[in-house]
């Protein structure tokens, strides 16, 4: 045992029974519905624009990797991206390079092969520029690995 907490533990276990009697369990989801939502703001503005860009890109990559690995229907991937983007304050995500770079990173992390990435480019993009952004993200993640 790294820390000697036995004495504290004994006291706390005795009181745990008392606590358990009045435990309401963990936090309820509606506990956050309060003035704190408006004071603390739904999105965090950052003086460093590249940081918020990276956070969004990272969200898209996390989502894409999880979605692909868990066998999600790729035709529905776009609607999931819409939700990820909206939480970051973005609605027209098709013109944001971070979206497609995040997709490319997510593909790499999910172990998608280049030939499959090429197929995704056809189904997920409307322009050559968007396809090139996916490739950039995929290549960047390959270097990181």
């Amino acid at each position: 045992m790294q820390y000697q907490y036995r004495n504290i533990l004994l006291t706390k276990i005795v009181t745990a029974a008392l606590v358990a009697l009045i435990i309401a369990g963990c936090s309820f989801s509606d506990s956050s519905k309060s003035i704190s939502n408006i004071v603390s703001s739904p999105i965090k503005s950052s003086s460093d624009s590249s940081k918020s860009e990276q956070s969004y890109e990272s969200d898209v990559a996390d989502y894409t990797a999880t979605y692909i690995k868990s066998g999600g229907d790729t035709t529905k991937l776009k609607s999931g991206i819409s939700k990820v983007a909206e939480k970051r304050g973005i609605t027209d995500w098709e013109k944001d390079s971070a979206t497609y770079q995040g997709l490319g990173q997510g593909f790499k992390r999910a172990g998608v092969k280049q030939v499959e990435v090429d197929a995704y480019k056809h189904t997920l993009t409307d322009t050559d520029e968007q396809a090139s952004w996916i490739q950039q993200g995929y290549d960047a993640a390959s270097k990181d690995n």
Partner: peptide
């Protein structure tokens, strides 16, 4: 004395914190 009189727990990875709420 609000929504979790038994305390609460969470896990934090840098800028993001994950926790579990009693929800609908």
């Amino acid at each position: 004395s609000g929504a979790s009189s038994g305390g609460h727990a969470a896990i934090r990875f840098g800028d993001d914190t994950y926790h579990f709420l009693n929800a609908d």
